[in-house]
Structures are given as C-alpha cells and as structure tokens.
Design a protein around this nucleic acid. Structure first.
Lengths: 225, 225
DNA sequence: ATCCTTTTGTGAACCGATGCACAAAGTCAC
DNA sequence: GTGACTTTGTGCATCGGTTCACAAAAGGAT
C-alpha cells in the first residue's frame, strides 16, 4: 500500500521522531554560532548519536544534504521544524501549579520551540488568581471553557496522582488529544488520544540499578551462578 | 561466555530495567489496597503494558510466580526493589536551584523510593544559604568536599545549559558515576559513567508531531493508518 | 487419586531499529 | 574537462525487543 521508496514517505519511524528534537537543538546551537553547513559526522557528535543513524533519520524526511558538503544548517532547521510541527504555534495548558507546574510554566525550552503557555489551572482557591510566569492561575472549573476559548490542543498534567485521571477525562472530553503526563499514574484514554509520560523517579531508579551493578550487585554475583 | 538459560542471568535487558519501576509503582498501589496476590494480566493492566511482556520481564529476575495463582505482591515488591537497588539508601545531590531544582528537591517520588537528597548546590550567592525543602543550599565551591563527605553517588543536574558540562566534569572527577541531566545539552563523560537525560521540551515536540499528523500534516497527507 | 481450571514461563516467529560498508553524487583544484 | 576527494543515502546483515501460543505446573473439586 505504501510506495516503497518515496522520498517523503509519511511513515517516519517513532525512534526517528524521538531524535529529531535532539538534532534540532544541536542545529540551533550551530546556527547561533554562525555555522552555515554541517556534515552528518559533526552533527552526529553534537547530538550524541552515531552518524549512520543520523543520516538514515534525515533521509526519512527527504534528501536535504549535498554529497561532498553536508547539510545547510538553516535549511535543515526549517525542514525538521516543519516535520515536527513547530512552524505553527501550539497553545498549551498546564494543570496543577505545585512546584513542578511552576517550573514547567517558567521553562524557557517550551516557548522557544513554538509552544505558548495559554493557561494555567489549579484546584486550590489559595493559588487561583496568583501570577505564575506572567500568567493568571485559573480555577479548574474553567478548564473546559478556557480550553475551547483559547484553542488549547496540548495539555500538561502536573497534578497530584490522585487527580490526574479525572482531569485527563475532562480535557479529553473537551477535545484535547495530546497529553503530557507528569503524574505517577497510568492514564486510561480513548483511541486517538496520545499520552506521553515523564516520571522523574523512574530515571533515578534506572541509574540506581546500574550503579548497584558497578558496585557488585545484590548478591555480589560475578557469574550468574 | 554466559550460561544461556540460567534463571537469574545477570544480563537483564535494558528495556526490562526501564519497566521495572513501572511495575513497582503498580505493586505499591496494590499493596496499599491490601491486594495479596496478582496475576500477570491484572498487573499488566495496572502498569499499562502487555501481559506477555510483563511475564517475560519478570522471568528475567527469576521464577517468582505461582502457576494458576499469580504473584505474591509483597514478595514481588521486594524482589524488584532489590533488583533495582532500592533496598539500599542512595545519597543524591541536586545542582542548580532554579524552578526545576526546587521542584526536584521537593518531589516526593524520590524519597519514597530509597533516594535521599543529601545536598543542594547553586552558584548564585543570592540563594546560597536558603532553605529548600528542608535543605540548606550550599555554594558550588563546596561541591567536591560535600560529595565526598556525604557519600553522594548520584547527581542530578538542573543547571543552565551553559554550566552543565563544567559541573558534570567536576562531579565525575569527584568520583560520581551516575548523573541525571535536565540541562538541554549533550554531556561528554568518560567510559563507566552513566548519564540519563530528561528533556522536558522533547516530549512536547513529539506530541506536536503526532498532533500535526492528526490535523492533516504539513502536506495534508492522509495517513494510511 | 484424577480431572478440570487457571496462570506461569518460554520457544519461536516476527518486527523494527541499528550499524556497517560502499556506490552514487556532488565539490574543488587545476 | 578531468581527476582526486568528500560526504551523502541506502542495501543488507544483525540485533534486541515484542508478541503469540502452548506445554508445564499448580490448585481446587469431587
């Protein structure tokens, strides 16, 4: 069903998509330093990947390099940005203004990538009305109305675990189909809704696993016996 | 080299390690609700994975289930905790007390998993001495001394991008071999040092990519599913 | 003690991702 | 224009991870 060797085959591998932001970050740095073109080898080093992988990834977007020369930095930034959908402006809402919600609201990496924090919600009347990173905290009762009014299409959940599923259900009912979940729970959503999760403690646990290995392991096992 | 079919083969796949914390979280919830045993099917649902995968993952740790019955919740919690190295206490230091650093210092998910925030550092004299989540912020000059004195083995970097590599070099020189990096840069470290990175904006970019697809994509290409 | 039910643990097929290695395609110097 | 050189784009082998599907193991009923 799919044309086997189409230059802009729509089926970009998930693993590639996950690396495109990495390339973009490296390219932005180069553009700032005035670099005009870059080879796959150099860009791969800057992004922390292997150059064959980088070239294969980029080839999924099309043939944007010049053999013998490399890639034009500006042009590649544009192509990757467009592919990721960063050439448009995304209205993002953050729900939950605890420590993490505040940190996210003030995080520069969002704004600089085409994301606009359009609203911030909390259930606690104590913080509703507060000013967080230049935004007025709104009451969670306004969730659906504000999402619709401001065209929010991506919601970031930074609520306590116990509240996450309920808020999730509400934003989904309001038409949101992309959710970034920081609450340590598995969210249940209908088909067609994308949920990505970030669990800060999981990464630390993975590090602990490897650290323990270096130190000798639970049974000081050298061999599996 | 390695015994091919040993029940406690030390070589646990990376993908499995990354899911163990997920199982652990689900199991903790069950233990709290008084559940004594759980089938792979139920646990898989609670953790948001497929049950065959769950069983294969657990089989890498050993044979801890009972056919026809399932897994003993308490026992499995212990086995996974031990495998991940969470039965010991890990001293963690956080460098950088911006919004994110503060959020991390106050994050309950660390403490409840065997991680102890042993120190918090910043370079800004303005915040040094402040109290963050019950901890005294120390000056970055004290980095090496404090790491050694308090036996810190894992460092969390929440510094600005520009400072991350330098701090990284210093903690590595001080003997730290596990680093969790929140700064949006690729860190260069010697062999034997583990770096895991969390880039909050990458997840959002991946969501944007898929959201754009749903909406029609850059060239209005209809996805063949 | 035997049969029936449940659920684990795993062999084997499958699938996607990785990395090597090289031909093709381009640049640059002369 | 020619030849030397550089670097891309990709075919192919390989690898690790996922999923299916089922035999083996345990418990409960009679």
């Amino acid at each position: 069903m799919k044309s086997p060797s189409h230059p802009r085959d729509r089926g970009i591998p998930e693993a590639t998509v996950a690396r495109l932001p990495l390339y973009l970050r490296a390219l932005h740095g180069m553009a700032e330093r005035g670099v005009a073109t870059v080879s796959s080898e150099d860009l791969a080093v800057a992004a922390g990947v292997n150059s064959a992988k980088l070239r294969k990834d980029l080839s999924h977007l099309g043939s944007y390099g010049t053999r013998g020369v490399g890639y034009d930095v500006e042009y590649l930034v544009y192509q990757i940005s467009r592919e990721l959908g960063l050439t448009q402006d995304w209205a993002v809402a953050i729900v939950g203004v605890g420590n993490l919600g505040r940190a996210l609201a003030g995080y520069g990496g969002f704004v600089s990538r085409g994301f606009r924090i359009a609203a911030v919600f909390d259930a606690d009347p104590e913080v509703v009305g507060d000013d967080i990173a230049g935004l007025n905290v709104e009451h969670i009762d306004e969730l659906e109305a504000v999402i619709e009014r401001r065209g929010v299409s991506i919601v970031v959940l930074a609520t306590p675990a116990a509240a996450a599923q309920e808020v999730c259900d509400r934003v989904v009912a309001a038409g949101v189909t992309s959710i970034l979940n920081f609450a340590p729970v598995v969210l249940t959503v209908p088909d067609g809704v994308d949920v990505r999760k970030v669990d800060l403690s999981i990464e630390l646990q993975i590090l602990a696993f490897h650290e323990q290995r270096k130190a000798g392991g639970p049974l000081m096992a050298v061999d599996s016996q």
